[in-house]
């Protein structure tokens, strides 16, 4: 059964490749809120602090909060990109990640070749990738563009392709950053249908966004982050009302 469980989860970004001393004087003195020193005396940014939550099957969770609140970092941590410095994380289910549409894409390859490449990234074979490409082609609605190099694609076309790829692999958990809103109205309708189907199949959706319309329409639960901490967690209307959004 798909599920995400986090307990006292923390992520810290060390600030390498900077002049640490001047940085220390400049920033620690002024704000100092999220910058701190770890045990090795390095300057780190506390990106996520002490996060505890459980997300069960069928939940559609919105991550809301200002820029730099840690929304994308949390998505990446759940995806398995970052290893937490403290706390526990347990993720059950295959993950589909829509965090950066360009990740793992090769601009010189065609849309179809990119689908096959993505399949290889997921550990599938080329034959499976070709089959997947057919499925993606049907949904993305790119027509002849599917066999053109993707560097000629518009932003919206990239989004269509990325979205179709990530959802075609029927993930148990779909992680999305808000860039996918670049799709046109027709596509957004198709995307919503697909997401609804995906989530009613007992899967989990987690989406980071600033668009409260999307939150109200698509999500059942909201987690409000600020400064790497959870400020509120609960039903969408309640969390948004408390935050005055």
């Amino acid at each position: 059964m798909a599920g995400i469980e986090a307990a006292e989860l923390a992520i810290e970004f060390p600030l390498y490749h900077h002049n640490a001393r001047s940085l220390k004087q400049r920033i620690l003195a002024s704000s100092g809120l999220r910058l701190k020193k770890d045990e090795d005396n390095r300057i780190v940014v506390a990106a996520l602090r002490d996060l505890t939550f459980t997300i069960g099957r069928g939940e559609r969770v919105a991550l809301v909060g200002p820029n730099g609140a840690g929304k994308t970092t949390l998505l990446r941590t759940i995806a398995g990109v970052y290893e937490p410095v403290a706390g526990r994380l347990r993720v059950e289910g295959a993950i589909g990640s829509l965090i950066d549409p360009a990740a793992g894409m090769d601009a010189l390859l065609t849309g179809r070749e990119n689908v096959i490449l993505r399949a290889l990234f997921r550990g599938m074979t080329e034959a499976q990738g070709r089959a997947l490409a057919e499925e993606v082609a049907g949904f993305a609605g790119l027509g002849d563009f599917l066999d053109m190099p993707i560097r000629g694609y518009s932003a919206g076309m990239n989004v269509r392709l990325a979205f179709a790829m990530a959802t075609a692999m029927t993930p148990d958990i779909l992680l999305m950053d808000e860039w996918f809103l670049a799709g046109d109205a027709d596509f957004m309708k198709k995307a919503e249908e697909r997401l609804t189907r995906l989530v009613t199949g007992a899967e989990i959706l987690m989406i980071a966004t600033h668009d409260m319309g999307v939150v109200r329409k698509w999500c059942t639960r909201a987690i409000r982050l600020e400064g790497g901490r959870i400020l509120a967690d609960g039903p969408v209307e309640q969390v948004l009302a408390e935050a005055g959004l």
Binding site: M1, E83, G87, L89, R90, E92, G93, T170, A202
Partner: peptide, 17 residues
């Protein structure tokens, strides 16, 4: 469920394995 085996990804900073 459509998946026979569900991949589990677990990490505990106290016991990093």
């Amino acid at each position: 469920m459509s998946h026979a085996t569900i991949p589990v990804h677990a990490f505990d900073a106290a016991h990093p394995r």
